[in-house]
Amino acid sequence: MKNINIFLLVSLLVPYVSIAGSQFCFEREVSIYCEAELGANYSLNGYFVKNSKHYDFAARRAFDGGWCQDALKSIMTVMKSAHYCMEFEESEKNVDLTIDSVVSRTSQWTYFQ
């Protein structure tokens, strides 16, 4: 009976795992850059290694160069803090992540306003 309950619990939770969200905290800056895309668009991308695992991340969409440079500048400001955290939409089981926010005690950047 106990096994069945555990199975049911796992079955209910599995579909929600992929968007459970994750947060990684850092003491140093991670690599982040703007990449030229279609037309005058730029995408915001980056990567980091945590617990010997390589993660790539990107913002949801490419927008114009001004948007990307502004986002990059804001994120770099947050990353200058001694301690900051990055939040992603997916759980840490994923290695391709969607960046939602970068937050320190004194400043922050969020994709959605």
Partner: peptide, 26 residues
Amino acid sequence: ATESSFNSRAEAFAGKRAGHARGLMQ
């Protein structure tokens, strides 16, 4: 799912030319 995570109030700044991206399909 990929644009707004099904959040109908989602709003992102999309640059000076494009303005804001809004709602489910941004």
